[in-house]
Structures are given as C-alpha cells and as structure tokens.
Design a protein around this nucleic acid. Structure first.
Lengths: 348, 348
DNA sequence: CTGAAAGCGCTTACAG
DNA sequence: CTGAAAGCGCTTACAG
C-alpha cells in the first residue's frame, strides 16, 4: 500500500503538501495540486483510515445498535441509515443486543472503543440501565435509550389518523385493541386514538369506543376479537382498530373464522404497515412508519444536519415524525358521506 | 481517555509492560500484572483501537456486503454473522449494494479502506465485475462474488429432500415449478429435484414429473398453478413442488381460488422457509436454509476456524451446507406407506 | 523478566 | 504558498 510518503516522493513535494491536497486545502497552488493528484492516481494511493483516526481522533463510522436486525422494521431502519450514511461518506457498524440489557451494554462498549462519530440506538425493551457518560453523540431511535434524545414516529398522531378515518367512514361503534400499557408506544397509540375519538364525539354524540388491552401479537388480537365478534349484531363494533398490524391480522383471522366479512360486516385497521399488511385478504388499512425520514433525522443528528431543519426538534431534542394513513381493502364506508361534504370526501 | 502511558505511570511500570499485560503475555510476573490490572481498572482504561490498528495493521472488524438488508434472508445471515463475530471479539460493518454493480464496487472500496479482517460478500445478482486484487480474505455467501470461495446452502440436496418426501408420501404425478434457469440457484434446485425423481423412477415406473419455469415470485407461481389445476383430475399433478416459498404461496392461492383443498387434493411444497411459510393456511412444507451454519462457516473462513472442520471445504474451497426438510400441513400421504416399512415410516 | 526506543501513517500548527 | 517536525496511542524487537 502506498503511503503519503510515497506520494510525496513521486510528486516531488513534502508529505504535508500531500496531506493538504487530500484534505482539499484551498491554499495549495494548482500546479502542485495537479502533480499530487497524478501521483495519487499513479500509485493508487488510499489513505490509511487507522492513521487518520489516530491523529484526528475521529473515524467516519456510525454505530447502530438494534435489538435484532431480523425484525423487519429495524432492518428497514438499518437499510435507510446505512444508505444515508454512505451518501455522506460514512460506514455503519452494526450490533444486535438480542433485546438483552447486558448484551446491550457490552455492544455499546465495544462500539465506543472504535471511537465512532456517534451512536444510533434502538434500546432494548427493558428500560436501559445507565452506563457511564458517553463521549460521542447518541440518539435514540424508536425506543428511548437512557436520557438521550428520541427520534420516533408520532404514534399518537398516527392513531388519530385511523380514528378520524373510521369516524369519517360512518362508524359509530368502534373497538380499539391497544398495546401493552407499560410500553410507551402502547400508551401513545392509545392516547392518540382516544383523544381523536373524544374530539369527534362532540359532533357525533352516538360515537362509542371500547378499549381492550392486547399484546403486540397475532394471538391476543385473535382472542380478543373472538369475544367481540361473539356479541349480538347491534352490540358488536362495526370497526376494530388495532395498535399493531400483528394484532389486526389476528382480528382478520377471527372474523374469517366467525363468518364475518371484512370490511362489509366489520372494518379492521392496523398500525406499522408491515409487509404482511399488503398481502392479507383483504389487504389491511394501516399507518406506515416514516422509515426514511426517521433514518435521515437520526443520521443528521449524529453528523450534523447539512441544511436540515433544526426547528423540527422540540426543546427536549426529541423529534416525532408523522406516519401516513394507508387505506386498503379492510376498511370501507358504512354509510354514504354526508351530502354537505361533497364528492370524494371519503378519500384520505 | 486514559492511555497506556497513564496506566504505566499509575502502576509504576513502563508502557511496554502495560502493553504486554494487556496482550496476555505470559512472561510478565504476577505481581506486576496485578498492579497493571489495578491501574487499568482504576483509570477505566480502554485501548484506542485506531492506534492499535495503525501499529498492527489489522482491526477487529469484518465487512459485510449484502444487496439489501431488508431481505429477510440476508437479515438473518447478518444477525448470525454479527452474533458470531461479537462472540469472537469482532465488529461488523454493514454495506448495502442495492443490488447495483457500481454501488457494490464503491461499497467494497469503502470497506477496504477500513482495513477489515476480511469481507463477507453476498454478491449482486448481476455477475460482479472484477475490481482489482483484494488484499484481505474474501468469502462469497449465498451468491458468488467474482472468483472467491462460495459458502451456500446445498440447493440440490435440499430439493432432493423434497422430491424424496413427496414420492415417499405416494405421489406419482408431480409438477416442479423451477426458478429462472439463468440463475445458479434456479439450476441447482431443479437439478437436485430432477435427479432424485430419476433415481426413484427406477423403483416407481409410474412416476411422472413435469417442469415449469417460474420467476422466484408469488405471481408466476399463481399463474402457472392455475393452468396446472385447470386440467382434468387424472392429468392434474397430485403434488406441486416449487423452487421457492414465494412461488409455493402463489400455488396455494391458486388452489384456494380453484376450490382445490391442500393437501387433500394437491400437496404443495416450497423452499427457503421464509416467515410467511409458517403463517400460510395450510402451513407450508419447505426446506429451511441453515442460516446459522452458513454464518458460522463464513466467519470461520475470515477469522480462521478455531477448532472447526477444514475438511468441510472441497478443493475449490467452496462449502455447501445442507438445509433441513420442514414438514408442515401442506403435504400429506396420498396412500398408506408400504406395510414393510413399519409404523411411522411416513415421518421425516 | 522488564524497560527504552523506534515507528506504524497521518495531520497540524509553526516557520520561512 | 510550502516544508520540516512533532505527535496521536500503541506494539514490538532489542538490550539489559
């Protein structure tokens, strides 16, 4: 491997000049610059990153910590983060914590030893233990790590979109299958949904909501839905919104088993827009998480936003990005939209 | 950050001794070792990886190049590789090529600049262009990169397992939906299936196989299956094996649409064992790829197998790992097993 | 068994 | 505008 020394000799200049040319120092005269560039090309010189890192004490690497890259949502985040980082000349070091606190601590320590530009951490679901001050920028993604700033989907706003959609379709008896209330995500999604329903109840006095706590999984969704669907027709909800697509898929299964047709007999909506949501029968109305925006915000935080909007962050430094309602076959109008709202008012 | 110098001063020894203790040099006397360790603990000393890398010219990092980490199979490989590497004290740098040749070349160059221990590459589907000699160990995973050794599932053997399973269940009229024959995977899976059928035909003269080329996707599977299922009962295959789960899922859909019950009217089997395979109705019989063994073999190749089996590699250095047949609800016996084979002979 | 010293490849004040 | 020199933190022959 050629070094700056070789390049300097080949170009007939000092190593200092080579270094300046390489770093784009504007004070180098064009003639010298050209000679150096020629030598760089001739020798196929590639800078030694370790030496540069030792000298400057920073390396173009971002550490990414996730519970399990096998989770499709985390894989999507990782994909976007890596792509964004690559565009800005940085590599990504990946670490899985297996959703285990001790492993998380170990992985973070290992990452820190590489002296990365910063850390993007999707924390383990157990609240993460404090682990001594970290000298590089750290940002939490999706799940908060210690007291670092959080970047996540605006779960409450997303749930509100679903609530508004269902009410707009004419549903008045709605069941909400919330996630575990000891999780922040579970709470925020429920709050957003309930608040929006409360707002709508002002103009729709007949609006009724029932809330049922589920796990974020298929089974609990199916189980709760079976109970709901076993009720008489005029008690049964006409729409079921779930705190996750997994739950909603379970609801879909229960409906099919109990000979209820979706969306004719009951509308169903989820949250997350996992791949399966577009493959179910019928396809699932849901809220897609703004993966790319989340990834970009996280990388911007570490590398410094180049022309980004620092205003997006609140005083706490937290950033919440709005998801988008994706309307598919599992929801449809119960009654025609009020004539006053005009043609197409049912679209979102 | 404390340095070796600080530790040396704190322990009252030279930096050379500190370094020796840290590297586990056995010649250091216990008394000194203890003093050094105490200083390390007191100062919370953490070695500077950049300095170590500069000096030794190697860094405990493995580069991993995949087309797209969002692909569940690659995500699983990445998860296992990272876990395996972490256990051996190494970090993983992740790069996505977006299945684009130019991006692949750029990502590999970027990775190489970090002077990693080696590169594990899942090549882009287009044959990868040569890109100058690479100085570190490189191993291809799943898809061959240039002329580097390949580690992959033994696709032919896996297909043979499916063929043997179906014949063993009593099927004599079998359709095989192969993958694109310009892909190596497509060819190997077809060859393995066809060879096993040919072998069985020796003892089952009535065994008939028809082969139909599909893409590795849902749609082409559904489309071909519709044609197959439109045939009269005594021409229609009693079993359909597909070169991928995606294809098989399409077959399942076609069967449902045409009122054929799986597995009663027709047995269906796939390949890959994607997550969806265990969620379909009925659940899909398939071949699971030995992800963990593949990952371990790849890491062993880069880091040097600690007590592994070098004998596993052929002369070419290629390693093929056998997948496992996973029997689920989509296949079942057409006829009782021959009495000679005893109870339970139908199990695999 | 331990220490002193060189040197890995780079960047960065500092002279000139 | 360019060059000479120090030094980042570590490891490793080499003396002793």
């Amino acid at each position: 491997m050629a070094t700056v020394k070789d390049v300097a000799a080949h170009a007939g200049v000092s190593v200092g000049t080579v270094s300046k040319v390489l770093s784009g120092d504007a004070t180098v005269k064009d003639a010298l610059r050209a000679k150096v560039m020629a030598a760089v090309a001739a020798l196929e010189y590639r800078p030694n990153m370790a030496a540069r890192a030792l000298r400057t004490n920073k390396i173009n690497v971002i550490g990414l910590v996730v519970p399990d890259i096998t989770n499709p949502f985390f894989a999507q985040l990782a994909f976007r983060i890596e792509t964004e980082a690559a565009e800005r000349g940085h590599m990504v070091m990946l670490a899985n914590t297996h959703d285990d606190l001790a492993t998380e601590a170990r992985q973070i320590a290992a990452l820190l030893r590489q002296a990365p530009r910063g850390l993007i951490i999707v924390a383990t679901s157990d609240s993460s233990a404090a682990a001594g001050p970290i000298e590089v920028p750290v940002v939490s993604l999706d799940r908060r790590f210690q007291d670092s700033a959080l970047i996540s989907t605006d779960h409450a706003a997303g749930s509100a979109l679903v609530a508004a959609h269902l009410v707009g379709l004419g549903h008045r008896r709605i069941a909400y299958l919330c996630g575990p209330q000891q999780t922040e995500v579970g709470r925020q999604r429920l709050n957003g949904f309930r608040d929006e329903i409360a707002r709508r109840a002002a103009t729709h006095p007949d609006l009724v909501i029932s809330v049922h706590e589920a796990q974020f999984d298929y089974e609990s969704g199916e189980q709760i839905a079976r109970r709901l669907f076993a009720q008489e027709d005029d008690l049964r909800p006409t729409a079921v919104a779930a705190a996750s697509d997994q739950i909603a898929l379970g609801v879909l299964r229960a409906a099919r088993d109990m000979a209820l047709e979706v969306p004719r007999d009951v509308a169903v909506a989820g949250f997350d827009d996992i791949t399966l949501a577009a493959l179910s029968v019928p396809r699932l109305t849901t809220v897609s998480q703004p993966v790319q925006a989340l990834a970009k915000a996280a990388v911007d935080r570490i590398l410094g936003a180049a022309g980004a909007s620092p205003a997006a962050a609140g005083a706490s430094g937290d950033i919440f990005v709005e998801g988008a309602l994706v309307v598919r076959g599992s929801t449809q109008a119960r009654v025609p939209p009020p004539s006053g709202s005009g043609i197409g008012s049912g679209r979102v």
